[in-house]
């Protein structure tokens, strides 16, 4: 039982990162009805930028801020140059284009920073916290990760519910035509959605990098986990993405704890498949009647 609790707690940090990446997927989906499969590629790229900044300045914070700026820029560039011009009739085109971006970004990162895994410096202690006479599988760094995730989620929630921009984004996600008629600059709103997603992804990348390592392909598996979480959460729902992201992290942690971490992709696949069969619109999604 103690080991079960340990595994669950140990999954919180990684769960939060999956949640953030899922959140980024949801933000682009809400904005443009595109699942941005390049999201982890963008996050990988900005994390490399952060690593370069960190090496240059020695400051973790400057690196993080730099990654966030780069993430926003990259999101805008990808949306503006790649996704916006895709012909609407070409339904497969947007999906394929995002994979094109992913391949290009991974190759570009490999060109600039090389294909080998690199360690990302640990900004805070990575030793287990000891409390109440026992060691907990949670480090100070895990708490920082959770803290960042909470700040981002709360901030985004406030943005969506309390600001005009958030209202415009929700209206645009609900119905772009109506939003345009009511004077919302839809194009700009969509681009902002992608910028936000880029920021969230960049933060997730910088946060996850010290716990694993960073290489052009090292986030591929995170894409699968995040997609799983986002889809089970309903793709449309910020709360769903966060909740299911954490949930996925916990499940994977428990599974890895009791068996082997190499099972995680298989477990994610099974979770995804079962969910897609039972409830294709996700747990938090809205069922839409089929129109004939």
């Amino acid at each position: 039982m103690t080991s079960f609790i340990d595994y669950v707690l140990g999954g919180f940090g990684s769960g939060m990162i999956i949640a953030l990446m899922a959140l980024a997927l949801v933000l682009t989906w809400r904005a443009t009805r595109v699942v941005n499969f390049a999201q982890v590629g963008q996050a990988m790229f900005t994390t490399f930028i952060a690593l370069s900044l960190q090496t240059l300045t020695g400051s973790w914070v400057i690196a993080l801020v730099g990654a966030m700026v780069a993430g926003a820029l990259l999101g805008v560039i990808v949306q503006y140059l790649v996704l916006r011009p895709v012909k609407r009739a070409d339904t497969s085109g947007a999906i394929i284009a995002t994979f094109g971006v992913l391949i290009a970004l991974q190759a570009a990162a490999g060109m600039i920073w090389g294909g080998d895994s690199r360690a990302y410096p640990q900004p805070f202690g990575n030793t287990a916290i000891t409390l109440f006479g026992r060691e907990w599988p949670v480090s100070a760094y895990d708490l920082v990760v959770v803290g960042f995730a909470v700040i981002l989620v709360v901030g985004l929630t406030l943005l969506f519910t309390r600001t005009n921009l958030g209202l415009a984004m929700r209206a645009t996600a609900f119905n772009p035509e109506v939003a345009r008629l009511s004077g919302i600059r839809v194009g700009r709103t969509l681009t902002i959605g992608w910028a936000l997603a880029g920021i969230v992804g960049a933060v997730a990348g910088v946060l996850v990098a010290p716990t694993s390592a960073i290489s052009p392909n090292s986030f591929d598996i995170l894409l699968v986990f995040a997609f799983t979480a986002a889809v089970i959460g309903g793709l449309d729902s910020l709360i769903g993405a966060v909740a299911l992201g954490i949930g996925t992290g916990l499940i994977l942690s428990v599974v890895s704890g009791y068996s082997d971490s190499s099972n995680a992709p298989v477990v994610a696949l099974v979770l995804l498949a079962v969910n897609l069969v039972l409830k294709p619109e996700g747990v938090f999604g809205h069922h839409k009647a089929r129109s004939v």
Partner: peptide, 10 residues
Amino acid sequence: PNLIYGLLVV
């Protein structure tokens, strides 16, 4: 090659 592939695909 992969960079070219990615850009070409887009």
